[in-house]
Structures are given as structure tokens and as C-alpha cells.
Amino acid sequence: MSEQTNHLFEFLLRQGDNALVLGHRTSQWCGVGPALEEDIALANTALDLIGQTQLWLGYAAEVEGNNRSANDLAFLRDAYDFRNILMMEVPNEDFGRTLMRQFMFDTYQVPWLTELQNSSNERVAAIAAKSVKEARYHLERSRETVIALGDGTEESNSRMQNALDYLWPYCGEIFGADEVDHAMSEQGVAPVPSTLKGTWRACVERALSEAFLVIPNSEFAHSGGRTGFRHTEHLGHMLATMQTLQRSYPGAEW
């Protein structure tokens, strides 16, 4: 693979793996949501994310040119080959953390995918154009829910604050600016994610103040997911579950 192809492949894995891992986490709620309406809404979000995964990883597999499919990438890579940010893989814990994570991610995805619609790479632009509609809808819902639960009762407020405190150090990783990011920017494929931080922060602050939630006073950020250098312990368990059939019965079709 040329360096240029490799950069594009890495970039596509980052998009696809974020969608895949978050989609998987969200799908874990199916059947046990706090109310039927929430159960259905969470499944919708998970379905959108799995659909986005198919597009991103499908294109990644083509770019790689190694005769692999989106399914091969999803089910036959090991943890260190995953390129999602760490925030996607931490456990759901409770509905509060699940929705807070969704909100943090959506607040980024909307401006990010909006930019990607102007990508010099037509395939990227097309996937972004489809995904951004879903992301806008997800943001509307996650934002409303975070505000409602932050405002709601003493307990719901403190649970949302806990979720925020836990997730905050994982947010910074979204705004990378490494070799892959710069290469994508030079080719006009995508902006450098760090350039969106101001927009993101302003939206997050506005919503969280409406939700009576306090942003932790720390800029510390975990990293290691989008490069694959060091994932959390959680990803291995998730993949052990997710990949079990493909790993146990090599070559079988389902």
C-alpha cells in the first residue's frame, strides 16, 4: 500500500470503527431500556451506526485492496488494529453515561460530517452526506435528553454529572492532529479534527449549562484509540463477544 493509500485507509478505519464500536455498545440496550420509547430510540441510533459502519468499512476494504470485506474488517481484526477513540469502547454503565457519550460524540459528528460533505474524495462526501442527516437527528435527541436529565431530579442530575466527570478525559482524543489528519487535510479529504474543537466546546458548554452540569476543570485527555497504540481493557472483551462466531467457525457463511 502506498503511503497515500495507507493514510486514507487509516482515516476510513477511524470513521468506521467509531461507528462500529459505538453502535455495538448502543445495541446492548436492546430489550432493557428504561422505557419502551427509549428502547426503540436507542435501537434506531444503533441501527444508523451499524449502517454507517458498513459504508465506511466497505470503502476502507476497497481502498486497502486486499480482498477483505467490511465484515472481515469488523470481525477478524484484533484490538490493536481498531482505530476508534477510547470513549466509544468504555462500557455503557447506565443510561446516563450512554446518553452523555452519545451527546459528546454527536456534537462533534454534526460539524465534522458537515465538513466532510465537501471532501475532495467523492465517496467520503457521499457517505458523509447520508450520515450527517442521522447525526443531526441523534444530536437533537441526545442533547434534549442530557438537558432533561441534568435538570430533572437530584438523582438524575448527579448521575449525569458522574457520567460527565467520567467521560470528560476521553473527549480530548476526538481532536487529533497527527500525520494521518494532516495528510487528509492536505489532500482536501477532511479538515484536521482539532480545528473543530472551538465549535464543539461552545455547543457542549451551552447545553451543559442548560442542564445544570459542571464541566470538569481539566484539559487532560486519554489517547491511544485512534492510533491503536493503547486501547482500554474493555475493547478486548467487546471483540471477544462480537467476533465469536467468525472466529470459531472460520470461513463459514451466515
Binding site: 422505557a35 438537558i147 430533572g152 448521575r159
Partner: peptide, 15 residues
Amino acid sequence: AWREGSWVREGMMAH
């Protein structure tokens, strides 16, 4: 699921 969702339902209603 019902028990663990109670804070969510109550929070939404209170809001």
C-alpha cells in the same frame, strides 16, 4: 430494567 430505569423516567417527568 424497570428498576434501573426509574431514575430516568422520574428525571424526564420532573423536567
